[in-house]
Amino acid sequence: MKNPAIIFVTLSVAIFVFCAAFLKNPPAPRFHPVERVWSMPDNPSAGPAMGWYGRTGVALGAAMVVSGISLAVLSYVNRKKPFTLKATSIYALTAAILLCLAVSMVGIVREQRNWFTKKPAVHTPDHEY
């Protein structure tokens, strides 16, 4: 694979799909580190859960499947006629990727806003200073 246009479009597809799946946050397995078990959100196990592994794994899986299809299609097209992108298309796609990454980061920050407004538990010292 020597054509940067194919890799660039495939990477763009991977980033768009990953960000969309990551923000959508579909039901994914959660890991319970104390019990060392996995569970689905609709059938939760006891104890603190970690959703990051499942969320990242599902988004990465979706990105790999769709970008793999994109790579196969573009490679096929490239064999018939060399696949190229105009400079304006590359700049436009780059701007779209930047926007996608920025929107994803804003979405992540918004997701976590409850942690910044939550009042901490009252701490009662067990001795006087």
Binding site: I7, I15, F22, N114, W115, K118, P120
Partner: peptide, 30 residues
């Protein structure tokens, strides 16, 4: 319980790390 805003800082850190994974590898591929 004690510092919920710190949990928020951490969550942004871990989720942001996932978002930047494909661009970090993508630069090399390109």
């Amino acid at each position: 319980a004690a510092l919920p805003w710190a949990t928020g800082l951490f969550e942004i850190k871990e989720l942001g790390a996932s978002i930047a994974l494909i661009p970090a590898i993508g630069v090399w591929l390109l």
